[in-house]
Design a protein around this nucleic acid. Structure first.
Lengths: 220, 220
DNA sequence: GACATTTTGGCATTGAGTGCTATAAATTGA
DNA sequence: TCAATTTATAGCACTCAATGCCAAAATGTC
C-alpha cells in the first residue's frame, strides 16, 4: 500500500508526544513541566521534541488542524438554501461531536487552555485559524472579502460564542458539549435582544430561549 | 498638594517606558527589539524594566487598565431603561473616542497587536479582562452569574465584534474608529440575520445596515 | 558496499523572566 | 547634621523556552 518510507524511522509520533505531555501537565501542571521531562518521557531528545511541536503549548492542541479542515468542509458543502447562521451552527456543533474517550481528553485540554495564562495566550493564535475558516465562509455567503467588517465580526463573534460554550462545558462536569455549543450559537443568532431572550419561543425545537439560556432570569 | 513621596524617586514613568518601547518596536520590529535596548533607551536597567511592565508585551498596552475602568463605569451608570445592547454599544464606542495624537499611537499599537504573533497571543490575556467587565454587566441585566452561558457568550461575542472593528480600522488608513466600532456592535445586535443584513433599515440614524456593513453585498 | 534520504542528538546561543541582595536616593525626626 | 526609614534601582545568578548548526544514526536503493 504505502510507498516505502526512505530514511530513518521516526522514534515516536505526534500523538504519543501529545499523550505524554498531557499526562505530565495534568499530573504536575503545565508550567511545572519542562520540555526536557516530556522529551525524556517519550524517549527523545529535547531538540527532537521541537520537531514534533513548535512549542510546549502546541502539544496541548492535539489534532486541532484536522478539526479545522473538517469545519471548512462542512461549511463549504452546506446547501445554499440553508441560512447563514443555521449552517454555521450545524457545522460548529458537528465538529464538536466526540466519543467518550475523546471527551475526557478534550475536557483536560480545555481546562488547561482556559486556566493556564500561557495557554490562554497561545490559544489566540490557534483560534485565529478557526476565525479565518469561518470568515471565508461568511464572505462567500454575504459577499465581499473575508477581511471585510461583516465576515470578520461574524467569525469572531461566533468564536466567542463557541469559547463561552466550551468554558461552560468545561466548568460543569455534566452536560453535553454539542448541546451547549448549539445554545451559544443560537443565542448569538438572537442578537441578544432582551425580548427574545426572556420570553419568545425560538424555532427548531420550539423551546423558550429563556428556559435554556437564562438560569437566573425571571419572566417579565 | 501632593503628600510628599517618601523614598527615592522613580527614574522614569510607565508612560515614558511605553513611549520608548513603542518607538523601538515601530522602528526595528517587536521581536528584534530586546528588553535591554528598551531599558537602556530609557536609562534604566533591564531588571527595572520588569518592575514597570510585567513583560515586553505589556509595554504595548499602555493605559489599557484605565480604559477598562472607564468601560466599567459607563456600563454601571447607564439607565435601566436603556436596552442591553444599546448600552453596550454606546459604552464601547465611548471608550474608543480618542484625540488625534492618541489615535496615531493607538493605530501603531493595534497594528503590532494584530500582526506580531507574540502580541496576538498576549492580547488574549488582556482581552479576558475586558470580557469580565462586559460579562458582569450582562449578568446584572440578564440575571444570573457572570460565568453563566448567556453573559459569557454576549461578552465574548462583543469582544469579537470590537476586535473586528479594530482590525478593519487598523488596516484602512482612513475611517473613524468610533464609527467602525458602532457598526460592528450594531451588526452583532442583528444576530446576523441575512434578511436584516441585506435590506432592512435599522433604528438610530435610519441607515440600511447593508449600505454600511456589506461592501460587496448586492440587494436581493 | 557506496549512496541518498530522513530523523535524531548534542552543542551553543539568544533572550525573556524571576529571585535575591546590596546600594542609592529621598523623607522624617531628633 | 546625623541616624532611621522608605522606596527605587542595579547587578548577579539562574531557569527555561526556542532556534540554528552540524554530525551521527538508521533506513531504503542501486
Amino acid at each position: 500500500m504505502e510507498s516505502s518510507p526512505r530514511g530513518r524511522r521516526p522514534a515516536t509520533s505526534r500523538e504519543d508526544v501529545a499523550r505524554a505531555a498531557l499526562a505530565l501537565f495534568s499530573r504536575q501542571g503545565f508550567e511545572a513541566t519542562t520540555v526536557d521531562e516530556i522529551a525524556s518521557e517519550v524517549g527523545i531528545s529535547r531538540r527532537t521534541f521541537f520537531r514534533y511541536y513548535q512549542s510546549k503549548s502546541d502539544a496541548v492542541w492535539g489534532a486541532f488542524d484536522a478539526e479545522l479542515a473538517r469545519l471548512d468542509r462542512l461549511l463549504s458543502e452546506a446547501p445554499d438554501e440553508e441560512g447563514l447562521m443555521q449552517v454555521l451552527r450545524r457545522a460548529v456543533v458537528e465538529t464538536n461531536r466526540f466519543n467518550e474517550e475523546q471527551l475526557v481528553d478534550l475536557r483536560l485540554r480545555m481546562s488547561l487552555i482556559r486556566s493556564v495564562p500561557t495557554l490562554v495566550a497561545h490559544s489566540a493564535v490557534r483560534y485565529e485559524e478557526w476565525c479565518d475558516v469561518v470568515a471565508r465562509f461568511a464572505a462567500r455567503r454575504l459577499g465581499g472579502r473575508p477581511t471585510d467588517l461583516a465576515p470578520q465580526t461574524l467569525a469572531r463573534a461566533a468564536l466567542g460564542a463557541a469559547m463561552a460554550a466550551f468554558e461552560e462545558w468545561t466548568r460543569r462536569d455534566d452536560g453535553d458539549l454539542t448541546e451547549v455549543v448549539d445554545q451559544a450559537l443560537a443565542l448569538l443568532a438572537t442578537g441578544f435582544d432582551e425580548d427574545r431572550l426572556k420570553g419568545q419561543p425560538l424555532g427548531g425545537d420550539g423551546a423558550r430561549i429563556g428556559d435554556k439560556y437564562l438560569q437566573g432570569g425571571e419572566p417579565p
